[in-house]
Design a binder for these strands. Structure first.
Lengths: 234, 234
DNA sequence: GCCGTACCGTACCGTTCGGTACGGCTGTTT
DNA sequence: AAACAGCCGTACCGAACGGTACGGTACGGC
């Protein structure tokens, strides 16, 4: 599963020093991950503009000089935040691909719930807002491509899942990309964009479990193998 | 229909003076609409940061003083841009609600195409990026609520359309809001968020006509009246 | 001819922010 | 103990931006 990360309520800085979950995050030292955590918190709370180098240095009890030494410049910092968070959202990837129909349905259900949980989490929303805001004309934008890594990974998981369902004979489709798009649409609808726009009411309406269940049911109806579910096109 | 606005290729400023379509836009004078047009152009081309008061004054051949006199402050300017654009995207609202099954299907198709066209247009994307970026914590955000006006209006049109289909006996549903969400999801999928993130390839993949057709077919399959389409819940 | 209005262009101010530099503290190495 | 490396805290710089003020100009009413 995707395991959304709760940013640890005790975000006190400089305190106990127990650096959350950590362990080598790959490219960053423990101290650096600590700072990135605080940066993410600032971003979630105050948005793009709240994350100034001075504010981060103050909140994380580090010097601006260190920030620039570690991350180069502000864009580098933003990129680091994104990759850091991406590394924390790991895909368990249900090593065992589903075989039976029930397993497949359960896997779909789990995927749908994970997708809803992650996409509507505070951190994901903040990161998406940041990335969306940094798209200028044609340039890849600061975090856009990096955030894509997270999106692509989820897509990859879904793709494998769909293929498993196809070979298992539980669903039928021709174009995997289009099929994924449909699944995504059924699960998310306009929830994501509404949440991004700050519509608080959008999220609360229904439990993620119920929403996921409804989406999976509809998806299975559309792509049922026996009767011609819908259109064969695309 | 929704009639996406082409921002007029000849965006030259101070030139001919033929102020695009205009006519009293409601709250703004001709000159002000002219300036708002230029502002929108700047926003589309360069994103949030490109729209500085100085840049706008230079590009629109007006003085900063006038900008502040007209719009109060920068936020007022942004709000004015949003309302200005919202007033240009008018809903023809197909005065005649569909009666026959064919009419209903055609109306759905038209709605789907309009939605795709509008949501993926340059201006809509720029405005959405702006609004998304201006969401801070709990505050309504600068353009968020205002942009909501546009979203809500589209929702309203869809709602009426769905009700017409229900009374006509072409579809069956219990929760109108959830049904609309499903329709939206089938039409848009992850296209909108991908486009917002700057994924150029997202838009081109399929013609809007084909996408709309596929979405409508799936939607009608799910909500067909005769056989129990899917789940009755929610 | 004179005034009021509306506007443009430019100069200006205060603040903020990204980025750099320096001094001092602490722990480690040799 | 001396040298060193890493880091914090603070001060500083230059640039950009939001917002304001001032002088100049075109135009319509009286």
């Amino acid at each position: 599963m995707l395991t959304a990360v709760k940013t640890a309520g005790q975000g006190d800085v400089g305190g106990g020093g127990s650096a959350a979950g950590t362990t080598a995050d790959a490219a960053f030292s423990a101290r650096q991950n600590e700072v990135l955590e605080v940066a993410l918190k600032l971003l979630v709370e105050g948005g793009d503009k709240a994350l100034t180098t001075a504010a981060l240095a103050r909140a994380a009890n580090c010097s601006k000089e260190s920030l620039y030494k570690w991350f180069g410049d502000r864009d580098g910092l933003l990129a680091a935040i994104v990759t850091h968070q991406a590394s924390r959202v790991r895909i368990i990837d249900a090593a065992a691909l589903p075989e039976t129909r029930d397993e497949f349905e359960a896997a779909l259900q789990l995927f749908a719930e994970d997708l809803l949980t992650v996409l509507l989490s505070d951190t994901s929303l903040a990161l998406n807002r940041l990335s969306v805001g940094s798209v200028r004309g044609e340039a890849p934008g600061v975090g856009a491509v990096l955030l894509e890594r997270g999106k692509r990974r989820i897509e990859e998981r879904a793709r494998r899942l769909l293929e498993a369902g196809k070979t298992g004979g539980h669903i039928v489709f021709a174009d995997a990309a289009d099929t994924y798009r449909t699944l995504y649409g059924l699960i998310i609808g306009d929830l994501h964009i509404n949440a991004l726009l700050g519509d608080a009411g959008a999220v609360s309406s229904l439990s993620t479990g119920d929403r996921a269940r409804a989406a999976v049911a509809r998806f299975l109806t559309l792509y049922a193998p026996a009767q011609a579910g819908s259109n064969s096109r695309t």
